[in-house]
Design a protein around this nucleic acid. Structure first.
Lengths: 352, 352
DNA sequence: GACGAGTTGTAGAACGTTCTCCATATAACG
DNA sequence: CGTTATATGGAGAACGTTCTACAACTCGTC
């Protein structure tokens, strides 16, 4: 029995382009042409080949494809998989990619520059056809050097002067303005922003853009040229401590704009624990309109930047890049207000 | 100028193994040997080659590698990226993979069997070294046919009889029992389970396991052999409607065990809107111990199955599989109770 | 009936690795 | 010194595609 088994080399014999060619009685090149629907194939030949492909359930090897031409895969790089905003972007990407012959592979960098670099390199080494980087941490010059090697679209990365790659963003400055305007409309004057305390406060990040918008709107509202901005450390044990301190401050503002729902929701929770009433004592507005914000229990007003749409738009931009576009594009999406109880009781007017 | 540009073929000249070989003055085979630290390399040669690699910043092409040998990539397949439990698993995977030379690529199937199949195939076509499937929808026989082609570890997939692939699970039956026992310990007798209404109610799913555990614990508690289980449709517009109906039922139970925090949290929210007090009118316990459950605003008791640990264990199992293990393994992890206010006021005793 | 033009199919060289032999050099041994 | 073992490096055939030439064949057309 062991002899018999050795006769058929028990290696899992893959169906390759060669198998298809012999089965259809044509050359390898012919099959390749049909696969890529290239010029110079008669209907008869095409029919025979597609039949053979069908019969053998042939799937081209992406590895081999990548070695020579397209791999029909695009890489998506996420900084952080826990922020509920990111999955929305992925959903958008998949919607556009669905009907096409492209597929997405995702890498998660966990906000570590080191890992981010090595993942981008890996994706290049895989000969992926293009990359969508969501809120990358790498500086623009580095991205530009990568962009020479592979088409890149950056989402949530404000660098409208980049020529090597495209950017797709919600207008974060305008979003922050909308938030402030909403607070002003409710009659609040004593407003502060809770922003993100980043080590490398790079100017291209969405957070900085929101700070700019915040300042501009405050100024325009006649509330001084340098309004208060507090920084919350990211995902550190100190995070809650800093928020508690903020909530128990004697000069705590009447209203607060949080750079992200992630922080706003934690703030809401701590406020409840500490007996600070929302919105009676403190009005809160967040950013991202995450699903948690929409919960009746939470009822957090927020700025909606449709992650899904950003994903869709970025994907379409990337595909057009892959298919030859050379000039860089910088696309902006308009965010909108979703009013809820954290802003003012019965604030659901604009809510869907 | 255009002539000059054509002289240097402006193709982005990649540093290949050949570049390294010439730079170091050795053969291609020698470089390859050093890369794979194979047998038969002198220290002198190794030094020269590593120097060259360093100097040229050489990175092997994964595509080419995959064509012949290992690609040092493992694929992770997620059913759904919005369930906050999944990111935890990814985090666990990345922790184990970090120090190794392997990298993870993630695919998202959105619970569509079609897409799930094609993603698995793609990963095979990429010659990835192994696959971690998180809560796959595909039946065991199909997974077995894939497992012939590539090492597979399934997470959240209860099929202890599978011989072709490994499984890593939290003991979902026991988890459900713990939930029921917690409710019993609080003195509740009138208990119902809110489960997931799946089309294909496949027995290997975590949901079914939790139902089994629920029934067993109820029976053991002397509460009948077929306790009530209501089904909530998944992600459909009807979902909330069904929950509302449940909450306004005259014979609404005194306590409810939800198959997932996702549902439990929505339930909590609707209960608040409808004036049903938790836990005074209705005690609730969920499953997954998601970060939202831990929020002060939500305060949902839950069963903790550490997704991080599941990810870690699965990754280690996969690597040992890749490196030769043939016999299948079926690993169980023990879940634990996290008591919070939705169970009973001042229920934070076991909370961290 | 020779010659271009167009159409359809094929040969075969890449692509960048891995890995199985082989060749050579050196050491060990009788 | 010859013979055999052992350690080190290299040649070159895969791997499964793509894609550039080019061959062969069919038509018109002069």
């Amino acid at each position: 029995m062991s002899i018999e088994e050795k006769q058929k080399p028990q290696r899992n014999d893959r169906v390759t382009i060669r198998t298809v060619a012999t089965h259809a009685g044509v050359s390898v090149a012919a099959v390749s042409k049909v696969m890529r629907n290239a010029y110079g194939v008669s209907d008869a030949l095409r029919a025979r080949v597609t039949d053979a492909i069908e019969a053998l359930a042939y799937r081209p090897s992406r590895a081999a494809r990548g070695l020579r031409g397209r791999s029909f895969t695009i890489g998506v790089l996420l900084i952080d998989i826990r922020n509920p905003f990111l999955p929305e972007v992925i959903a958008g990407v998949n919607e556009v990619l669905g009907p096409s012959h492209y597929q997405a592979m995702i890498g998660v960098s966990d906000a570590r520059v080191q890992l981010e670099t090595s993942l981008i390199e890996s994706m290049i080494d895989y000969k992926m056809d293009g990359l969508i980087l969501v809120a990358p941490r790498l500086p623009s010059e580095i991205l530009a050097t990568f962009a020479v090697q592979i088409p890149i679209v950056a989402v949530g990365y404000h660098d409208a002067s980049a020529t090597a790659f495209d950017t797709v963003n919600a207008d974060d400055q305008r979003g922050a303005e909308i938030a402030v305007e909403a607070l002003l409309a409710c009659g609040y004057r004593d407003i502060e922003m809770l922003s993100l305390g980043e080590r490398q406060g790079h100017a291209v990040s969405v957070v900085r853009q929101r700070e700019i918008g915040f300042r501009r709107a405050m100024q325009r509202g006649g509330l001084g040229s340098s309004p208060a901005i507090s920084k919350i450390p990211i995902a550190s044990p100190k995070r809650e401590e800093v928020m508690r301190k903020f909530l128990s401050r004697k000069d705590r503002p009447r209203a607060v704009f949080c750079w992200s729902d992630l922080d706003a929701i934690t703030l809401l929770s701590l406020a409840m624990e500490m007996g600070v009433r929302v919105p009676e004592d403190l009005a809160v507005i967040g950013y991202d309109n995450s699903s948690t914000a929409a919960l009746g229990l939470v009822n957090l007003a927020s700025i909606d930047q449709s992650g899904r749409e950003l994903g869709q738009v970025a994907t379409r931009a990337l595909i057009s890049r892959i298919e030859g576009r050379a000039a860089s594009e910088h696309i902006f999406q308009m965010p909108s207000l979703v009013s809820r109880n954290s802003l003012t009781r019965f604030g659901n007017s604009t809510d869907r």
